[in-house]
Nucleic acid binder design. Structure first.
Length: 208
DNA sequence: GACCAGGCACATC
DNA sequence: GATGTGCATGGT
């Protein structure tokens, strides 16, 4: 699957961000939201000089919500960003490097304890901001994997994650690219659920 | 104008 | 534990 997707689409250059801190913002802002909308919110934060957790920690919730309005669920996400800023500041002194020193499994538990950080957001942060070998599962990944008969949709997030990690080497670059390619495939016009004759994954049909 | 995005928390049974 | 619902924008 990985090779088919990579051959068809090429490297996706994820995560689309200039800094690790920007990845952390994006991970929260993109929850159930098209990336195009998130880009606008990040641009607004950048323009206001607020793409910085130390800065927003002392910022007003409503003003923050206004800035990220294009990213949908503005009030929830404003509170989520503040909750993360509080955690990031008190636990790691706003230092990505200090956070990176912690083992992945402990970090994951800590992240899951932060308001509105669930498994996908936590894993996106771990893989794309902190370079921890953790496979990210999202709606596209579940859909595509179930469509091709690997694991049915009824399985949990952790089931899907275990499936990938049990069958692949713990490689940050591989996890990065594979997940990005799955999202790319999910965004394909043919929406691979009904496979079009041009889908790179059609070769998997009938045990290919 | 409908439909849907790279989820999550919380209520209810 | 399973299932349902609110959140409340902008692109296609």
């Amino acid at each position: 699957m990985y090779r088919l997707l990579l051959d068809a689409f090429g490297p996706q250059h994820w995560w689309p961000a200039e800094t690790a801190e920007e990845v952390l913002f994006g991970a929260i802002l993109t929850q159930n939201t098209a990336w195009k909308n998130v880009e606008q919110a990040i641009a607004a934060l950048k323009a206001a000089g607020m793409l910085n957790f130390r800065r927003i920690a002392a910022y007003d919730v409503n003003s923050l919500a206004e800035l990220i309005r294009p990213a949908r669920f503005m009030n929830l996400k404003a509170r989520a960003l503040l909750a993360f800023a509080s955690f990031f500041g008190s636990r790691y002194g706003y230092s990505i490097q200090r956070m990176q020193c912690a083992p992945a499994d402990r970090l994951r538990e800590e992240l899951l304890g932060v308001y509105r950080i669930g498994p996908e957001t936590a894993d996106s942060m771990l893989l794309y901001a902190l370079a921890k070998p953790v496979f990210v599962i999202d709606a596209y990944t579940k859909r595509i994997m179930s469509r091709h008969g690997f694991l049915s949709l009824g399985h949990s997030y952790d089931d899907f994650q275990r499936f990938f990690m049990a069958h692949l080497p713990a490689d940050v670059a591989l996890y990065n690219e594979f997940h990005a390619l799955l999202v790319r495939a999910g965004n394909c016009v043919c929406k691979p659920t009904p496979l079009c004759d041009r889908c790179p994954l059609r070769k998997l049909e009938h045990g290919g």
